[in-house]
């Protein structure tokens, strides 16, 4: 374990070819099908995350953006081992935690915390604020801890709450305040990486700005990194240094935030950016708009996952699944259009 060695070159979090599948077929009797005089029991597998690789450096914010069902939340939950990954590797500071059991995860948990989406469901309604925010810390300590109240108070102050909130229950707070409590809980163990799963999407706009500011202030103060999951392009653009775009469980494009917004390469990224409502611009004609809807993650399409909705799809897209390849400037795209070999093919179509 490399606890003391903090090699700046080594990424804090590295995910290699991560794969997460869920068997949703239920029991044998649920699966039983009788069709055309034949009895079969097919399994139904949801391919939630398909060979995703990413790295988060110390002090960096990596935003993962995509629509519902694209696997971004599953990715987050698999990284903190709420799900056991079905394939690939998760490394924290070079330490492979993919197959860690409960006991071996314990020291890792201190480095890895999570902020959740729903401010109403993410706090135990029967716990007082002081117990909620101190729980991860107390769990990470071997024996009794002195000055718990002082520590709790200091934590609350960091997120903009005060002593009068210490002994209240979650229902006595507004959505934004609850999210602050959730952030305090994640801070209690002084983690290196916080995985934030849609932390502001359930909040009102004015409160959203407060929480985003708080998250940035805390990052500046403590120097941790975020893996920031969101569907909201304006939020991801504001908070991220780099962005990964997911579609149907695949990473289709990654790159520095500025490049992604200025020169999106993947047709899906382009469509996503075009669809996002812009303040003060009238709804234009459907130009970059894509039709149709996301296909089922149970029966993944052959070839490129996006080809059925892609206005630029050609023959090869149906046959071969594109790999995420670097295209320069730190950007990488999984699209046959952006591979050197396909330029003539494109010209021919």
């Amino acid at each position: 374990m490399s606890q003391s060695v903090k090699d700046p070159a080594k990424p804090l979090l590295e995910v290699r070819q991560l794969e997460q599948r869920f068997d949703v077929s239920g029991s044998f009797f649920d699966r039983l099908r009788i069709a055309g005089g034949r009895i079969s029991a097919p399994r139904r597998i949801v391919h939630a995350v398909n060979g995703v690789s990413l790295a988060v450096k110390r002090g960096e914010v990596l935003g993962i953006v995509g629509e519902s069902g694209c696997g971004k939340s599953t990715l987050a939950k698999t990284i903190v081992k709420l799900h056991e990954p079905t394939g690939g590797q998760i490394l924290i500071e070079g330490e492979d935690i993919t197959r860690h059991d409960f006991a071996r995860m314990r020291p890792v948990r201190k480095k890895l915390q999570m902020i959740f989406q729903d401010p109403y469901a993410s706090l135990n309604p029967r716990q007082k604020v002081r117990d909620i925010i101190m729980e991860p810390f107390l769990e990470s300590q071997a024996g009794p801890v002195p000055d718990i109240a002082d520590r709790a108070l200091a934590l609350l102050a960091k997120v903009g709450l005060g002593i009068e909130h210490l002994d209240r229950y979650p229902h006595q707070f507004s959505g934004g305040q609850r999210q602050r409590i959730g952030i305090a809980r994640a801070l209690s163990v002084q983690p290196d990486l916080i995985i934030a799963d849609e932390p502001v999407s359930a909040l009102d706009v004015s409160i959203q700005a407060q929480i985003l500011n708080l998250l940035m202030d805390l990052k500046d103060e403590f120097g941790f990194s975020y893996l920031f999951i969101t569907h909201d392009l304006s939020v991801v653009r504001y908070i991220s240094d780099r962005i990964g775009v997911m579609y149907l469980g695949f990473m289709v494009e990654t790159g520095p935030t500025r490049t992604i917004f200025a020169e999106p390469k993947h047709p899906y990224t382009r469509a996503l950016l075009a669809a996002a409502p812009q303040l003060g611009t009238k709804l234009g004609p459907a130009s970059e708009q894509v039709g149709g809807e996301v296909p089922s993650a149970i029966d993944l399409p052959r070839g490129c996952p996006f080809r059925q909705r892609c206005p630029l799809a050609f023959a090869r897209c149906a046959e071969e699944r594109p790999e995420l390849r670097p295209v320069g400037g730190g950007q990488a795209v999984a699209c046959h259009l952006h591979e050197p070999a396909t330029e003539p093919a494109l010209a021919a179509t």
Binding site: E67, S68, H231, L233, A271, L272, A274, A275, A276, P277, L283, A286, Q289, V290, G291, E293, V294
Partner: peptide, 11 residues
């Protein structure tokens, strides 16, 4: 609804 669907429906 998702952004891409949202734009379709608003239109």
């Amino acid at each position: 609804l998702d952004v891409t669907i949202q734009a379709q429906l608003l239109r």
